[in-house]
Design a protein around this nucleic acid. Structure first.
Length: 689
DNA sequence: CAGGGCCCTG
DNA sequence: CAGGGCCCTG
């Protein structure tokens, strides 16, 4: 851990002092809660109340219709019941035959043994965090620094000071470039002076002519050709500096992407003195600042510097373009925010507007950081502390709710239902947490969705990636009713219940972040699929490996299904199955190698402390806030045995050997709990996959 | 996880 | 032909 002054390091120090696994949920109502593993959360609120209204699914008619049309669901269930019962009996008999063989002594299905020390992963994160921070800062500073470095490096390299590794490379090329660079620097100085003069001249002309010359080509043509050229160039300078100013204010500091081209522009303007004024005017009249990168002026061919210069200019222009796009998006984002809208007073002029834009923009940038970074940062500390939400004190930031449960994998047994059957939850430290990049993904989607929802973009299936569904009526992030609120309405028949650690009880309330714009009006459905839907689909996989499209429609009432969405969701389940079968086959082969098969089926029990179980749980229930249904464990065991026996019998030589297994598994789907019929995630909190 | 190819089924 | 599933790939 480095000791750099780091704004985010606050999170390391401002920790809550309750110990690992020691705090009871109810004991510290004001403290951030660990509810089974809940992500930090974004402003997300439930629209549960609304869901109970028009979206109160489960009306008999609809359900009936769905089930009826659904490839004879009851039929399938019936067959399944029979077969399953048969299977169970068979297995029971075998288990009785080999009672002594049941045992976790088998490495395959053993409780997870060696694990990567969590400190390894824990140590990674700060590094990444640092990296992230550096990246962020480099957006601001790097630019200025880069230019400075370019300038100073030459000087420094003489006396051998400065960053060795960077200079090593530079030094190699130095000899060849030094002369050129010195020349260029001198030229730049010259250009700055010239620019000053030009500005003076511009001022005079401006005073003399006021705005008259802007009024039309006729007036402009009426002026002397000498003045004309000067004005045109000055106009260019003005535009440029405006552009630059806007960009610079957009970024929190001056960026080289804008600065460097500026120098080039000066250079060009300077050279332009001798150029054909008419052609230059043409270029300017086209507003072709984007093209004003040397190529337009034929600098590429101009001399020996053309190559490097072209490359440099191209890079700068590209960076500049990206920066502008980002600026624009963040600006839009900031402006669409409620507080920032209020923040934006009536602009009294260009300057004021720019200033406001600047403020908003900076706020947006830091908002972005605040919003995204803590999500990454929380992981390392999650075991011992929750982040201090106040570490992000941007006024524009919709307050991150400090009462929200913080992160997945915060396995505090006390928060788990007493019926928790996951021994590894308590007995193992959290798995080395992969950096929650998807969370960042979510953040960016969130950001973009909000920013662009004001734009007339998109429609229907234009984007196959429905995560990027920017339709104003289709925010990518659906309402997320907290099932904790639904306890009363949950059918007692949900035997597997599934829900675990939901919301942690009293006071948890909605996972509100204060941004209601993210939620759908009651009764509406969205066209796109969100990470939440993916999560829900994964949980649904515990019950249905082969859901029909009608089943999907039944259990995703907040999704507006079209061909695109349906096939995407079907594809999801296809991917889920693939993962499932791959794991089953893998473990079956391992079991075959280890000779487990001969030791009875009991040896193939899929205990909840087994590695295989852990892997499956991690994949489908990453945040671990759902109780894996017993039924799923049974199905998995069955699949495992089927794979194993096929492998043992050598049937795996047949290219189609898996199909028979698929057929068996296909029949083992069980009814999805009614709680899945409600929109949103059937879990306590929002957990982005 | 998504895309594409291929196959099977109705 | 469309829908759905598996496989392979990135």
């Amino acid at each position: 851990m480095d000791s750099l002054p780091d704004p985010f390091s606050l999170e390391h120090t401002q920790v809550f002092s309750y110990g690992l696994y020691s705090s009871l949920p109810g004991s510290a109502p004001s403290a951030p809660r660990y509810a089974g593993g809940n992500p930090p959360s974004h402003p997300v609120a439930s629209h549960f109340l609304r869901s109970c209204g028009p979206q109160a699914f489960g009306s008999y008619g609809r359900r009936h219709a769905n089930e009826g049309s659904e490839e004879s669901g009851s039929d399938r269930e019936g067959r399944e019941g029979e077969e399953h019962e048969e299977e169970r009996m068979r297995r029971g008999a075998v288990a009785a035959d080999f009672p002594a063989l049941v045992g976790p002594s088998l490495s395959l299905l053993l409780p997870r043994g060696k694990r990567l020390p969590s400190c390894v992963a824990g140590d990674l994160s700060p590094d990444l965090v640092r990296e992230k921070r550096v990246c962020t800062e480099s957006v601001d500073k790097g630019a200025a620094e880069r230019e400075e470095a370019n300038g100073k490096e030459r000087g420094r390299s003489v006396d051998g000071q400065g960053m060795p590794e960077r200079r090593a490379g530079v030094r190699g090329k130095k000899g060849a470039r030094e002369g050129r660079l010195r020349q260029r620097q001198e030229l730049k100085v010259l250009l700055r002076e010239t620019r000053g003069k030009l500005l003076e001249l511009q001022e005079r002309v401006w005073r003399a002519y006021g705005e008259r010359w802007r009024d039309g080509e006729g007036q402009r043509a009426a002026k002397g050709s000498g003045d004309d050229g000067g004005i045109a160039r000055d106009e260019s300078a003005e535009i440029f500096s405006e552009e630059e100013e806007a960009s610079d204010q957009g970024m929190s500091q001056k960026s080289p992407m804008h600065h460097l081209p500026d120098n080039d522009a000066e250079e060009r303007r300077d050279r332009g003195q001798n150029d054909d004024a008419g052609s230059q005017r043409t270029a300017l009249a086209g507003g072709s600042l984007w093209l004003d990168c040397g190529l337009v002026r034929g600098e590429w061919e101009a001399g020996s510097e053309g190559g490097p210069k072209f490359a440099q200019t191209l890079k700068q222009e590209l960076s500049s373009a990206v920066a502008r796009v980002i600026d624009r998006v963040t600006r839009l984002y900031a402006q669409s925010g409620p507080s920032s809208a209020a923040d934006l007073g009536p602009a009294e002029g260009e300057g004021a507007k720019l200033e406001n834009a600047s403020r908003v923009n900076k706020a947006a940038v830091s908002l972005e950081r605040c919003e995204a970074l803590p999500l990454v940062l929380k992981r390392p500390q999650e075991k011992k502390a929750t982040q201090n939400p106040s570490s992000c004190q941007n006024p524009l930031l919709p307050q991150l709710n400090p009462t929200l449960p913080q992160m997945p994998h915060s396995h505090v047994p006390a928060l788990l239902p007493t019926h928790s059957k996951d021994p590894f939850l308590a007995s193992f430290p959290p798995a080395p947490p992969p950096l929650p990049l998807p969370v960042l993904h979510y953040t960016m989607q969130h950001l973009f969705a909000r920013s662009l929802s004001t734009l007339p973009l998109h429609k229907d299936c234009l984007s196959p990636d429905t995560f990027l569904d920017f339709s104003p009526h289709a925010p990518s992030f659906p309402p997320l009713p907290l099932m904790g609120q639904l306890d009363g309405s949950l059918p007692a028949s949900d035997r597997d219940g599934g829900r675990r650690g939901a919301a942690g009880g009293a006071g948890s309330g909605y996972a509100d972040g204060g941004d209601t714009s993210l939620y759908l009006p009651g009764g509406l459905s969205q066209e796109g699929l969100s990470p939440c839907h993916l999560k829900k689909a994964k949980l649904m996989f515990f019950y249905a490996r082969y859901p029909s499209s009608n089943t999907l429609k039944t259990y995703f009432p907040d999704v507006k299904f079209n061909r695109c969405v349906t096939s995407q969701m079907i594809k999801w389940f296809s991917n889920f199955r693939e993962f499932f079968y791959i794991q089953m086959e893998r473990f079956a082969r391992q079991a075959a190698r280890e000779g487990l098969a001969g030791r009875g089926e009991a040896a193939l029990r899929l205990g909840r402390d087994s590695e295989l179980y852990r892997i499956l749980n991690l994949h489908y229930n990453k945040s671990n806030d759902y109780q894996v249904p017993d039924r799923f464990v049974e199905v998995s065991e069955l699949a495992l045995r089927e794979f194993l026996s096929a492998i043992q019998a050598g049937r795996d030589a047949d290219p189609c050997w898996k199909k028979s297994i698929y057929k068996i598994i296909c029949k083992l789907d069980s009814p999805v709990p009614d709680s899945f019929r409600l929109p949103g995630c059937p879990v306590g909190v929002v957990n982005i996959v």
